[in-house]
Amino acid sequence: MMLFGNIRSQQFYELLRQATENAAQAAAMLGRLLEDPALFSELGPAIKDLESKGDELTHSLFERINKTFATPLERGDLAALGVAIDSVVDAMEAAAARIGIYRVQNSDKHFRAFAQILRAQATELVAAIDLLAGGKLFDIGERIRQINTLENHGDDELRLALSELYDQAASDPIRFVTMKEIYETLEEATDQVETVANTLEGVIMKRA
């Protein structure tokens, strides 16, 4: 039996699916930007548009929650999922914005690593929401584990990036400050994806 089996319930699924696809598009664009920061004039506004779209989808989800008597999941869980997914895109847009603000022109191995991590997390997130809609709750566990593992890789990448930055801080303190902020914002984006995974895990535990 599908959690989103009837037409009205399916509408909740569609909004969550659109939100996760929006996050995946943001991850793809941010990945391109991290691989080539010189593309900011093209990709920065596009990512900002996706952030605005995410806000609209979250608003639509809340409206539907408030107007629907019987929801396919607890109202609090639906709301928490919507907010968490939106926060993923917010964090990605914040990282992209900083690349533009600080006029970053060149990529590095840490940018490229975060690009891979965020793209992979977004892919797992879309798959997890599909499984949720199909009522395949126990299959979501593997997607959650993958997201958590990728978040741990993000933690490791941040530590490595900051360590290397520190070694160069004396010779270029401005770069240390600006790049530290960007790296930390990228790691925050991986944390936000993990928050969605943790919210999904809570849903599974309630229905187990």
Rank of each mutant, 00 (worst) to 15 (best):
L186N: 01
D86E: 09
F111N: 00
F176Q: 04
A84H: 06
V193E: 09
V83E: 14
V177R: 08
N148F: 05
E181G: 02
G154I: 05
Q116F: 11
V126E: 11
V203R: 05
N152H: 14
I65E: 07
E188V: 00
R98T: 03
A95Q: 11
I85E: 03
F69P: 00
L125P: 03
R175H: 13
A122N: 03
V126G: 07
I101E: 14
F69V: 01
Q146G: 03
A197Y: 03
V177T: 08
Q146A: 13
L150E: 12
M179P: 05
N106E: 15
R119I: 12
R112C: 06
I129P: 04
E194K: 11
T123E: 12
I144D: 00
E63A: 11
A97T: 14
N198W: 02
G141Q: 12
I129F: 12
R159Q: 10
A70V: 15
A122H: 05
S171M: 14
Q192Y: 12
D191G: 12
E187Q: 07
I174Q: 13
R103T: 13
L160Y: 10
L158K: 13
G154E: 03
E194L: 03
T185N: 07
D90N: 14
L160M: 14
E142K: 10
I85D: 01
N106C: 01
E142D: 13
I147P: 02
V83Y: 13
E93Q: 15
I129S: 08
L160T: 14
S171V: 12
A96L: 06
Q192E: 15
G141T: 12
I144R: 04
D77H: 01
L78W: 07
G134M: 08
Q121P: 02
V126R: 11
D108A: 02
S171C: 11
T199F: 04
A127T: 14
A79W: 09
G76C: 02
M179W: 05
L165G: 06
I147F: 11
R64H: 09
V177F: 13
T178M: 12
D156N: 15
E74V: 11
H153K: 15
A127N: 13
V104D: 08
D86R: 09
A70M: 15
F176R: 01
M92K: 05
S171P: 06
T149N: 15
V193I: 15
A170L: 09
K180A: 11
Q121M: 08
E142F: 08
Y166N: 05
A127V: 10
T199L: 03
D77C: 01
A84I: 03
A127E: 15
G154L: 01
V104T: 08
E93V: 09
V83G: 13
E201P: 02
E164D: 01
R145C: 04
A189N: 04
Y102Q: 10
E201W: 06
A91F: 10
A128H: 07
T190C: 11
K136H: 07
I147Q: 06
T190G: 04
E124L: 13
R145M: 06
D86P: 03
H110M: 06
A169R: 14
F138M: 13
V177H: 07
A94R: 13
L81K: 01
A113Y: 09
